[in-house]
Design a protein around this nucleic acid. Structure first.
Length: 109
DNA sequence: GGTTTGACCATAA
DNA sequence: CTTATGGCCAAAC
């Protein structure tokens, strides 16, 4: 259900709007958000928007990788732990290895 | 305004 | 199962 046309225009806002739609206790993948905003292969760009929009009241922690995993590489190990705790706080089961049963918690637009 | 970067993804080995 | 590689897109430098 996307009215999103005009690729490249307002991409950030479309991403923010899409992520804001994810209900509590549910998760989506970066790729899903990319499709939802009309850029099927822009998963990476989606992640960039989220990082830049941390303090925007956006439920960024409900966005994980397509395989239900929280990427833990480089410097964001701390962020990953925080994300795990936030999800658990919403009732989403997250393993110690940062793996989520995305098939069970995925939100479909 | 060209180059680098990055909360990704699919595929191959 | 894991790691490696290439592609992808928009934002940041």
């Amino acid at each position: 259900m996307s009215v999103w046309l005009t690729p490249g225009v307002g991409f950030k806002e479309r991403v923010i709007a899409a992520v804001s739609k994810v209900p509590l206790g549910k998760v989506v993948s970066y790729g899903q958000v990319a499709v939802e905003v009309g850029v099927p292969r822009g998963a990476r760009a989606v992640g960039m928007v989220l990082k830049h929009s941390l303090s925007q009241g956006l439920p960024w922690w409900r966005v994980i990788s397509g395989r239900g995993r929280i990427s833990i590489k480089g410097n964001w190990e701390h962020e990953a732990r925080e994300q795990r705790e936030l999800l658990r706080g919403e009732g989403v089961e997250v393993g110690e290895d940062f793996v989520v049963n995305i098939g069970k918690y995925r939100y479909w637009y």
